[in-house]
Design a protein around this nucleic acid. Sequence first.
DNA 1: TTACTACTTCTGATCTCTAC
DNA 2: GTAGAGATCAGAAGTAGTAA
Length: 208
Amino acid sequence: RLQQHYINKPWWNKLIFFGREDGHLSKAQLDLLERKIIEKMKRAEIELDNNTQGNQSYIDKLSQFSALSLLSKVERVLIDIANIDLFASDDTEFDRFDPTPNNDTISILFGRQHYTGSSYRDVFTKLVSTLVLSSEISKLTDLINSTEPNTVQILGTLERVSGKGTKLTKAIDSSKYHVYVNFSKDALYKKIQILAHLTNNKVTFERW
DNA sequence: TTACTACTTCTGATCTCTAC
DNA sequence: GTAGAGATCAGAAGTAGTAA
């Protein structure tokens, strides 16, 4: 499939793939998963290059449960670990993945994307990382310093360490940037509002 | 394998400094 | 005096090493 897409679909540059470690994923299960993902994408009003509905292969109930369980795990890992919500506009689906939210977690809704973390700084870091790695970074030029970040220009290309050796910044994976994170809860709240303003996004502090 | 200790890192709060 | 920026600190949490 990748070879076909490499030749026929020149527009893509990233992919997400998953499978089972033991390799036990039947044709019927693959067809079911493809069909479910297509359905979810369409419900989320995401434009698809693929015009098919997916194959209607017969699948027994046990295999169906196994496949859907795998899909649920994949989506959860994407959201919790990689911070990627494939069906961001489908709030119902998002809620189903996390029916018992942990009161210890912090979460915000930024635009159509949920960000959760174990701390205020964690959520802030995830949000900034996502923006930096997206086209939204072009809207954040006022926040970028060519050297070390500071409390105003929170993004920079160098790590910042205090005189006593305290790290005041965090490196953003897969980018050249470091983000200043040594803020109080209130300061983080305000910085997120600034990010929302600059990127024309609405932000809701769900568990803050 | 478990328990313990020491060390490092992370987090949230607070203090100091500066500009207005 | 006040607000915001910059810096520091204490406690919590996590990790690594070691002995039993």
